[in-house]
Nucleic acid binder design. Structure first.
Lengths: 209, 209
DNA sequence: GGCGTTGAGTGGTCTGACCACTAATCTACT
DNA sequence: AGTAGATTAGTGGTCAGACCACTCAACGCC
């Protein structure tokens, strides 16, 4: 009879690190102790500490600069997405799920935003549209970033960003700028039905590409 | 003038590993070469190979069994989800966000489910309700698990489960079983308005607790 | 005051050494 | 002959120590 719960050192380090960050109230940009110091403090080998740090790095939680140190980063999971996507997006169903979920979130974000948008926000959206040039790959992302910003739900935005990055690994969108123009109109009209319709069309477009 | 693009060894190992898996057509359960062999093949130190493997392990892509070897796993991002969520949920000023987002997802899941629910599903929901006893802490979770199951969106379900688990760490719900009963009724009536209303009430209840 | 030098500190990497565990093989006893 | 037990090769887990390349600030020279 063996206890399956014998944690590995690097997992312990992860936990400790998480606790440390919380205790010290560190936020993105702040510096973590050096690998050597962490190893000594946590009574672990440097290699074990590194395994934990490298994993966190891949998750996009920290950033590391040779010669300087290790820093908390604002969540930029692009490495993780790259690695993960190759493995989990193989099933068609996963892609379907991803698309459906992203659309769902965007639709809701629009509805939330429509109650919060100020005149200034509309100007920003409008100028974003004016600056549009065919071939821009990040338009959708930038447009919705504004929408999410207004909604003031950081969590929802982070989830969405993650999915947006995933979907970009297998799908290069072609934009119909008109849909976005009408979307802004629908927002200012407070027209929920039209928002849903356009939100759906956004994806039909993209699908057909 | 420095080239920022000098890859680290463990990142190279990750790429190689991904390629290797694809080339060999490995699927979940299959064994990967040993750490020592990988190190030799890829011309890298064992510690670098381990950093890559540990990162993959955290992502839930591989499973490692001491004394046996390293195996491809079917994607169970248990650890990743745990670590990631701890940081994301901690950073985003969250509890409000979490509640709002979870509610949003549940509401949408209900709407999706209402188009897919079979007679049998209703029976299951009904018996779940019949078995309810005050003090059961997992009722909400179990009820919605059925809803998500019907929706056939695994991704959405995983996201929700994660948030559900998290919210339980700081919030013990008290249930008003009547709301769930009426929810089932609204579902079978295909009454979107009522679904939204009840979904909101679910959380007003809980808030007031 | 300004500018190069230098040294301490940091991450990046490799090597070699143990340990703990697993599974297959071999051995010896019944 | 069959089986229980011991042996051993191979694996992941961990650590310590050694370099390297890089950054930055302190120092000292002009």
């Amino acid at each position: 009879m063996t206890m399956p719960s014998k944690s590995k050192v690097y997992e312990e380090v992860l936990k400790e690190l998480r606790r440390f960050i919380e205790e010290q109230g560190l936020s993105p940009g702040d510096k973590l102790p050096s690998e050597r110091e962490l190893a000594e403090r946590l009574n672990a080998g440097r290699s074990s500490v590194r395994e934990a740090l490298r994993a966190m790095e891949l998750l996009g939680l920290i950033e590391t600069r040779r010669g300087e140190g290790t820093f908390l980063s604002s969540y930029q999971p692009y490495h993780m997405v790259e690695i993960l996507s190759a493995f989990i997006l193989q099933e068609a169903k996963t892609k379907e799920n991803l698309k459906a979920t992203k659309q769902l979130i965007e639709k809701e974000a629009l509805k939330i935003a429509k109650n919060h948008l100020t005149d200034y926000d509309y100007q920003v959206l409008q100028s974003k549209i004016d600056q549009f040039e065919p071939g821009t790959e990040t338009f959708h992302y930038e447009f919705f970033s504004i929408i999410f910003e207004v909604g003031e739900n950081q969590l929802l935005m982070k989830i969405w960003r993650l999915m947006e990055e995933f979907s970009r690994t297998f799908h290069k969108p072609a934009y119909d700028i008109n849909l976005y123009i009408r979307l802004v109109q629908a927002l200012s009209d407070q027209d929920n039905i039209q928002i849903e319709t356009l939100s759906n069309q956004l994806y039909q477009e993209k699908l057909s590409k």
